[in-house]
Design a protein around this nucleic acid. Structure first.
Lengths: 198, 198
DNA sequence: CGCAGTATAGACCGAACGGTATAAACAAGG
DNA sequence: CCTTGTTTATACCGTTCGGTCTATACTGCG
C-alpha cells in the first residue's frame, strides 16, 4: 500500500453534505458536488462509488453530527423543561442563522421519502423516531418531577412537539419570519404547560 | 377565426397539475407533462408558453379548487369548532386517500420557496396566510360563543394550528402512518381545548 | 375551392445529466 | 529504479433536459 490518501475524505463528505442539503438529491448535480468538494470526478467515484452512496453518507453524517449531537447535549442537562425548550429554540435559531434557508436535511429528505432508497429511508425514519422518543422521555421525567402537567399523554404530546418542530423547519424556509417561528415555539410550550421563559 | 380550440385547456391544466404536484417543478420533465396531458410539444408551448407559466397556472388552479373550496365549505358551516375539526381531518383524509402520497401542492411548493418565481411565491404565501386567517376567525367566533377557551390568543393559536396542518402534510408523506396523523389532530384540538369528538 | 389558423408529429438544437475510461503525474515501499 | 496505487485532468459515452421549428393534416370561413 504505497499511498494512503491525499484528500480528507470526511471533509469531502461534509462539503458534499451542504450541497445535497441545499439542493436535494435530484437537483444536486455531479458538477455541483465536484465544485463543492474540490474533488474531481475520478476521485469522487473512486472514493464513494457514486451519487447515491455519497448522498447516503452525507445524510448519515448530518444525522450523527446534528441530530444526535443536539439530543445528547440536551439530555445531558438533566432538565426536561430546558431540554424541550432548548430543542425548539435550537430549531428556530438554526433556521434563522442559515442565510441559505436550507432547513433540516432530515426533514427535507422526509418530504421526498417516496423515492429514496431503503437505507436513506431508514436514517430518516429512525431520526424522527428518536426525536419523538427524546420528547417523550422529557415529558415523562418532567411529569415525575411535577414540572409539567400530568394529565397529558407523553407519547402523544411528543408527536405534537415533533410536529411543531417539523412545521418550524418547513415554514422557516421562507414562508414564516422570525416572529412567527417564535410564536410556534410558544404555542408548543403551551402543549406541555411550560411557564413562559425566554 | 376558422377554428377555436380542440383540446380542453382547463382539463390539460388539471392533468399537468397532478404531474407537478407529484414530482415538483424541477423533477417534472416536459415529457412527463406531455404524457400526463396528452398534448404534444407544440400545443403545450403554444397554449401555455412554457414550463414555468404552466406550473404557475397549475398551482393557482390547485389553490382555487382545493384550498379555497375547502375553506369556503367549512366557513359556510357557521360552526367554528366543526370548521377547525373539519380542516384538520380533511388534511389527514387527503393524505391517507392519496396512494401516491403527494401531500399538499401548496406546502410542497412552500418547502421549495427559495427558487420559485415571484408569482408562485405569492400564491403560496397568500394561501398559507388565508388558512391562518381562517383558523383565527374560527377561534374568535368560538370564543365569542363560549365554545373555546378564552385565555388564548386567536392569532397565535391560528399559527399553531397551521403548523400542525403543515406537519400532517409533511409527515403524511411516508414518515407517519394513519394513527400518528390522527394523534396530531387530537393534539391540535387540545390547543384550543375542543372536546374530544370523532 | 382557397385561405387562415390550429393541431399534430417529430426532427432538431445546444446544453447538461450521471457515469466510465484513459492518460499522465505523483508518492511511498521494495 | 520499479512497482503499486492514487491523484489529477480530460475525453467520451448515451441519455435526457427545456425549448424551437418545420412539415403536414385538418377544420371552418368566405
Amino acid at each position: 500500500m504505497p499511498w494512503v490518501k491525499s484528500f480528507d475524505e470526511e471533509q469531502a463528505v461534509d462539503q458534499a453534505m451542504h450541497v445535497f442539503w441545499k439542493k436535494g438529491f435530484d437537483s444536486a448535480s455531479i458538477t455541483d458536488l465536484l465544485q463543492g468538494t474540490g474533488l474531481n470526478k475520478g476521485s469522487l467515484y473512486n472514493a464513494f462509488g457514486g451519487k447515491r452512496q455519497l448522498f447516503a453518507r452525507t445524510l448519515e453524517k448530518y444525522d450523527r453530527e446534528h441530530r444526535q449531537r443536539l439530543l445528547a447535549k440536551l439530555e445531558a442537562l438533566d432538565d426536561p423543561v430546558a431540554a424541550i425548550d432548548g430543542f425548539l429554540n435550537a430549531t428556530v435559531e438554526s433556521s434563522l442563522a442559515d442565510p441559505e434557508r436550507k432547513g433540516c436535511f432530515l426533514i427535507n429528505t422526509a418530504h421526498d421519502l417516496e423515492n429514496q432508497p431503503e437505507d436513506v429511508r431508514a436514517v430518516v425514519i429512525n431520526g424522527l423516531r428518536e426525536i419523538e422518543a427524546f420528547f417523550r422521555r422529557c415529558i415523562e421525567v418532567g411529569q415525575a418531577r411535577k414540572l409539567l402537567r400530568c394529565d397529558i399523554s407523553p407519547q402523544d404530546t411528543a408527536k405534537a412537539l415533533l410536529g411543531v418542530a417539523v412545521a418550524i423547519r418547513v415554514l422557516g424556509r421562507g414562508a414564516y419570519a422570525e416572529e412567527a417561528l417564535r410564536t410556534l415555539v410558544a404555542e408548543a410550550r403551551r402543549l406541555v404547560q411550560l411557564p413562559g421563559s425566554s
